[in-house]
Design a protein around this nucleic acid. Sequence first.
DNA 1: AATGTATTCGAACGAACGTTCGATTGGGGA
DNA 2: TCCCCAATCGAACGTTCGTTCGAATACATT
Lengths: 243, 243
Amino acid sequence: MTAATRHSNSNGRAAAAPRAARGSKAYDRKLEAILRQAAAVFRTRGYHQASIRDIARATGVSLAGLYYYFASKEDLLYLIQRHAFETILAAARAGIEGVERPEDRLRALIRIHLRFFLEHPNEMKVLTHEEEWLSKERGREVRTIKRAYYQLCFEQVEELRRARGLAGLNTRLAVLSLFGMMNWIYTWYNPKIDPGASGCAGAMADIFLDGILSGAGRPANGHSTRKANTFERSGAPEIRVQN
Amino acid sequence: MTAATRHSNSNGRAAAAPRAARGSKAYDRKLEAILRQAAAVFRTRGYHQASIRDIARATGVSLAGLYYYFASKEDLLYLIQRHAFETILAAARAGIEGVERPEDRLRALIRIHLRFFLEHPNEMKVLTHEEEWLSKERGREVRTIKRAYYQLCFEQVEELRRARGLAGLNTRLAVLSLFGMMNWIYTWYNPKIDPGASGCAGAMADIFLDGILSGAGRPANGHSTRKANTFERSGAPEIRVQN
DNA sequence: AATGTATTCGAACGAACGTTCGATTGGGGA
DNA sequence: TCCCCAATCGAACGTTCGTTCGAATACATT
């Protein structure tokens, strides 16, 4: 048992729950500011490498003072992730409301996702890069929101698949590929040379939608045999490490 | 200056370069085994969270004994990354040699990439997830190999773009989207329910190739206006954090 | 058997970490 | 003005970290 995980339930604080629900407006505003700054620190230094002292420096709050706003470093990560996921999920749901065609709903989801990514790069990097460090219960809670978000996207693609009779489409694989396209953007996006969020969203939506829609009549194994594939060797050798 | 970065050039070791080039076959074999095990530890615990003591436990080598094979923790990360990148770059170059059509070369690159990913998940997660922790010079060296790998892929897409007259295609964005699709796989791949490397590669290649090839005659801003986009609002408001 | 070099290790060092504790401040209601 | 409680902080604790050092062992060549 490390010093970090040791819990003293006999401390003098009233109602010994870690991080009591303190209600004031000023409290909420300051907590949000701390979450924002902490996300920036986590983004550049990484969750584990970043120290609470770094966050104290970034926020101007003293080391001990921070613990008035969150119970532990892990709690801080949890608050950032939950906050960001809830926000983007709500934005996504609002964004497809009243949009008729599944194709347009998908385009909307892509645009919202990328816009959120480029407007909140700190939170999104933390979301995609520091998934695995929450405790069992906290991890489950965050994953539940994430799953709902994934599901929202999945439904649109599945609807499209049914409507267009795309028998050979693996919807799960397609959706996860789409998320890959979008989420990877934090590794390369450069505002000086790349289009804005709408431009990127349009380009990715074109690739993805044309990619899955032109596959009608493709065999169910999910990969093209329409063209002679002169490269294909049936039993390609394992890629050897070294040399 | 931390204990970790302190360098004693007055130690008793001959030829005080950190990690001298020790030549024996047994040395090389053991170093490779250490790199393999260390990649596994880094994958599950993360580079910063993983301790040299974890790696000592995983390899069976004592804590101090490990430093006979690498000069520092960062050196260890560097060796893993360089080794993995050089291997996959060589495999990619070999894999497209003699393949005529750029489309087939791209399919080959995708298949090789995914196969390497699924056969060496530890190394690939370290490669994609722990990019930023190398020193300036080491980071530059690894990025040089990565750049060559990216360039190899870029050239195929660019060639395809020229051959098919895809005026509206943003090659950089397309290639980086493709890498996103492929590299994201480590976050979701489940061998129990997902197709093997060839199946995934075929599906992704279909999405990507059909996606960019069906864009012929599209306007140069890179996103579709062929269909009435009933969703598009020109000045959509910023996504607000919280409610 | 003797020698020299390659390899391995136990033990320790100093720094940095997350967290806690007791004390102090500050501002709004009595 | 006094009081209460929310908010804040300096200082410290115990642990873990990366790294080093000197000694011990293994091994190939004489």
